[in-house]
Structure formats: structure tokens, C-alpha cells
Write a protein that binds this DNA or RNA. Structure first.
Lengths: 189, 189, 189, 189
DNA sequence: TATGAATGAGTATTCATTCAT
DNA sequence: CATGAATGAATACTCATTCAT
């Protein structure tokens, strides 16, 4: 599939897919996505050869979007704790602000239609998480693999996002509590 | 007077469903489940009127299984920390030992085909989690809602189970690290 | 299938089938019929080898029931018109009185699951209709076949029954009008 | 811009449905209809969202067809009797000429899958039947409801069509006899 | 290139019938 | 003989994908 003409149409399809997946899961029919995107049924397949390709593209698109958010908020940080907290905060905020995006990403994350390659590619977007995760020798995480921290980070963040979505008034408390867990869990005092 | 309804067959269907859902998600076709269970397709619907009923039954079955495991390992605990750690350990061990069960439970947990009732019923099986979660006033969790802890517990546990499944040699380290996170996150020193 | 033991059970099945067919058409499931008859699903098939056999039996049963009614009301008639009118009246009354029976018979009459043999057998139950129908040479019916009259008789009667079922207050008028049609149509003055 | 929706295909589906319903009743499977129409099974559902929609469309299609026939034969009539007789004749002729159509219409008419709306719409196609039915005060039909005549008209016509289908040589006699019944039954001398 | 009509394999569910108890 | 559990072919409908326009 050659790069298709309309960048805008591709974007519309992605956005429509996000919305559809958020509300109907990965089984959301392509017809529904097409309708929501304002394109014909067949058009989707000129931009994404199969539905799976589309789903994986959505997955990466969301991860990149999240990535951008985190960079945007990347103020020069005083301390490593500050940087870590800001990563955490922007991650959670992104999910809370754009519920659709967050819900869609959750659905995709657990779906077996997202390939291992896409997952690897997505993880590579967040190198600083790994860096922050670099545990000091006496951290409890020292003997866990390097991406155990990553798993835990997103697991905690997703749980927090999900919870805050239903209890917006507790957003601040939960964000703080979640970060404390992460930070103390790494062996910081 | 007729052939009695077979407890064993019902079990076979549940087990088959677990396996099928673990590897194909909740969209695993009933034909596949039937074949795996060694029964005719129609038989499934004698035991579970609809596929959704089957899925909810599987969900509760797995939760109960998990529950039993945790009770079985419920040694008289010296301290509250000890009790908490044992809950955590047996939860994670269950998932690690029976990967299918754990994967299926994850798929079901995020599926919108599991009813709110089933979820409530499932949560009621783990009252001690809530009790352990009771935060003291100066815990970071104090201002979060009461089930934020629960969300975090399963999120961390599932992440740990998933990770350990791929890195069995690090099981001990990850289990310990995960619990530390949880424990310290609650404000314990 | 040997004549089965319980005459009573056979009757219960027939009655249940009448009710089920009246309200759900010939597609009424055998399980529903069994339940309504208070017998097990399989029992039906000890009395009637197939569902089609059951339906044909119901058809004949209803025709016989109708037949009995008409005989019962068969007072010694003064004139041939009187006899004809009484036939007509008892036929229509039967349908009006037992709506279920009438509805079921209608459903069965138009169903292609009733065999030609059953239809012939049923017609043979009403020989006097044919006799009454014997047209005099100058009747408009003279050149129609002998059972055209029969068809017309039941067509008119069924239409009348159906109409009266919804407009019970007009029963008398419709019965009279229907008979007039029949009688005058035969060339009587 | 895409392939236009084919009027011809819709027609093929309707015709196939008529044929299938005529010979197998309303339970004729959609696969059979599709095969007979020479289209894929899914295609049926592009033209008719559900099978019930298809059945209702077939019902109306047949009524309209019948309607056209009757209009076509609508010569300027000398008398009201002449007009009535021509209505009757063309109705019966239609059924005799196209046995499938007539059989299908009969099946549909008694089916509970034809909606009340469709029936009302169909009746509205034949306003002159109601007009002709307007009974004079001393008609036997005077005290019956206004659509008793309609019921009787179709009942007689269908019976006649059915009979003539098997005895084509008696068509003329039966048509005449049937009309006489109707006409005399209305109190005409 | 975009469209949307056409496709047909795939899905959950039903039901007449069989047969172990 | 009666029961009802088990069966699996059949059914209406869906949907990712193809392809004529």
C-alpha cells in the first residue's frame, strides 16, 4: 500500500477507530469506523490493508500521542524525583483528559491482535522510563528484569486512570498515592 | 430417570472455555469451546443458556479458584504484614502456575460482557483484601477511595504475573518487589 | 410405534399441540408442546414418530371434533334448507366457541406439512356436505366439480369464524349472511 | 461512483422469495432464496435488513401486482354488477395465472410475520372493493361489519383460485359460480 | 483514487430426534 | 415405558474484504 494521498483522511480514520474501539472494543466493525470517519467502507482498506493493521496503527498512534504529551510537559527538572513525578503525572493526566484515547489504548493493550512488534516499537517510545527505572543496587527492583518496572509503571498508571475516570474528585490524591508507590517501591526513602 | 446431567461435562466446558478464552479472547467461538470440551455444540447451551452466561460463569469460576488457593495458603499469620504478603504471594503464584487461568481472567476482567453483578459477586469473595487495604490516616492512600487499593492490587499482581510468566527465574525477586511497592505505598515504613 | 399405553397422555399431547399451534403456528417447538402437555420431551416421539405425524394427527383430531359437534346438533330437520343451515351454524359455532381449536385448524390447513392423504381423510368425514352440495341442474354450481362446494363452504365458514372472533357482537348477523351467500349461491331462491 | 444498487437484483430476490415461499412457506430458508435469486446470502440483507422485512416486502409486492392486474382490466363498466364481476374475475385470473404468486400470498396472509401496518397498507390498495361492498339497507350483510365483505371476498376468491388451479377446465364455471354467490349474497336479485 | 455493492465464511443459537438411564 | 441429556444440522444475520464502477 503506497502512502495514500490524503493525510487528513488517514487521520480521520484513526480518530474514528479510537472512538469506536473505546466504546465497542476491538470488535467494533469496520463499517462503524468508516461511518464515523466519514469515508466509504472500502476506503479504510486503502489506508490500512487489514483491520489488524488498522488496530496496530491505532495502538501506536495512541502511544505516540501519549509520548508527545509527556515530552511537552517535560520542563527542566530539578531532581530525578521531579522528573519521574512529571512523567507519571503527564501519563495519568493524558488518560484522564482523553477518556476515549485511554479506554481505546486499554482495549488494544490486552488484545491479542496487537503484534509483539508493535508492542516493542511502542515501548521504545518511552526510553526515559527505562532510564528512570535504572534501579540502584539495593532497590527491591534490582533483581527483576529491566522492563518489570515498565510493566508496573503502566499497570499502576492505567489503574489510576481508570479509577480517576470514575472519581474525578480524587484525582490529586490518587495521582500522588500512585507515584509514592512507584517511587518508594524503587527503594527511595 | 433419564441420563443425569453431568457435573463432569459442565466442568469440561468451563475448562475448555478457560483455555479458549486464554488463547483467543472472549471472541473464542463456541464451536471451538465445544470441540475442546469434547461435547456437541448444542450441549454448551444446555449448561449455559447463552455465551455471555458461560463467560460470566467462567469469570466467577476463576475468581473462586483463586479464592480457594488463597485460603489454602492461609497459614496463621504472625503479623498483618505477613498476612498481606501471603495474600499477595498466593495471588501471584496462582497466576504463574496456571497461565491459562490467569490470562483468561485478564481477558474477562476487561470485557464488557462480564456483568456488574458478576463483578460485585467476585469482589465479595475477597473481603480480606479490603480489610488489609484499610489505610491508616497518614497513608498516602488515605484520601483515595476505598477500592483504589483493590484496583492497584490487581493491577500490580497482574503485571507481575504477566512478567513472571516470561521470566520464571525472576519470580521471587518480582514477587518481593511487587509486594514492597504495595506495602510501602500504603505508608508502612 | 405400537399403540402406546396411556390414552390419556396421547390426548394431553394433542391438546397441548392444539394450544401451541394456535398461538405459535406449526413452528411451535416440540419442547413447548411437551411442557404444555406435562410430559417429557422424548415422550412425544413415543406417541408420534415425527413432528409431522403429530401435526397431521392434530389436524384429523380437530376435524373429528368438529365432525362430532355437527352430528351432536343434528336434530331431525324439517327441510333440506334447515339441515344445511344447521350444518353451517354448528360449524361456525364450533370455531367461535373454541378459538384455539379453530386457529390451530386454520394454521394446519394452510401448512404444507399436512399430507394430501390427511386432507382426503378429513374431507371424508363430512359426506353430508357433499350430499347437500348436490346441485340441481340449473344451479350455478352445476358445472363446477363436486368439491368446489366443499372448498367454498369451509372458506366461507373460516372467514366467518375469524371475523366473529374479533366482532362477537355481530355473530348472529354474520352467520346468517354467510349462510345466505352459500344457499343463494347454490341457486336456491 | 461505486457499483450502483441493482434494481434487477432486488427484483430477483423478491421473485425468488415468492417462489420459495410458495413451495416452502414462510419458513423457506434465506439460503434457498439467495440461491434461487442467484445472489450471495449476504446480499439479501443489503436489500432487506431482516427476513421479516423481506416477507413484508413480498407481501406488498404481490398485492401491488394484483392491484395492477385489476386496474389493467378495468374497462369502463356498464353497471355496478359489471364492475364487481370484473374485479372478481381479474382477481381470480391473477391467482390462476400465477399459481406461485397466489400460493405465496396465501401463505403470507396467514403468517404472523406480516405486520399490521403492511396489512393496512395492502388493504388501502383496493379501495373499490370496500366501495362495491357498501351494502344496501336490506342486504343480509347490512348488520355485519364493513370488512366482513372483504374477508368473504378474499376467502371465496382464494378458494376459487385454489380449486381452479387443480381443475383448469372448470375455471369459467367456478368463476361464475363464485361471483354469483358473492353477488346474491349481497342481496341482489 | 474513492466508493459502496457484493460476497460468503463465520457466529450464536434453536430444535427435532436419538438413546442412555 | 418414560425420561430428559445429548446431539449436530440448520438458521438468520454479521462483517472483513474484494472489486466493478
Amino acid at each position: 500500500m503506497a502512502r495514500p494521498r490524503s493525510e487528513e483522511k488517514q487521520r480521520a480514520i484513526l480518530e474514528a477507530a479510537i472512538h469506536a474501539v473505546a466504546s465497542h472494543g476491538v470488535t467494533a466493525p469496520t463499517t462503524m469506523i468508516a461511518k464515523e470517519a466519514g469515508v466509504a467502507e472500502g476506503t479504510i482498506f486503502r489506508y490500512f490493508p487489514t483491520k489488524d493493521d488498522l488496530l496496530n496503527a491505532v495502538f501506536l498512534h495512541l502511544k505516540q500521542q501519549l509520548r508527545s504529551t509527556m515530552i511537552a510537559s517535560d520542563a527542566p527538572a530539578d531532581s530525578i524525583e521531579q522528573r519521574a513525578r512529571e512523567s507519571w503525572n503527564s501519563y495519568v493526566d493524558w488518560g484522564v483528559l482523553d477518556t476515549n484515547a485511554s479506554r481505546a489504548l486499554n482495549q488494544l493493550s490486552v488484545s491479542d491482535r496487537i503484534t509483539a512488534e508493535a508492542r516493542v516499537e511502542a515501548d521504545a517510545l518511552f526510553p526515559e522510563l527505562s532510564e528512570l527505572a535504572e534501579p540502584h543496587p539495593d532497590s527491591p527492583l534490582a533483581d527483576c528484569g529491566s522492563d518489570y518496572y515498565n510493566s508496573v509503571f503502566s499497570a499502576l498508571a492505567d489503574a489510576t486512570i481508570g479509577y480517576v475516570a470514575y472519581h474525578p474528585d480524587r484525582a490529586a490524591a490518587c495521582k500522588a498515592a500512585g507515584f509514592t508507590m512507584l517511587w518508594k517501591g524503587m527503594g527511595h526513602p
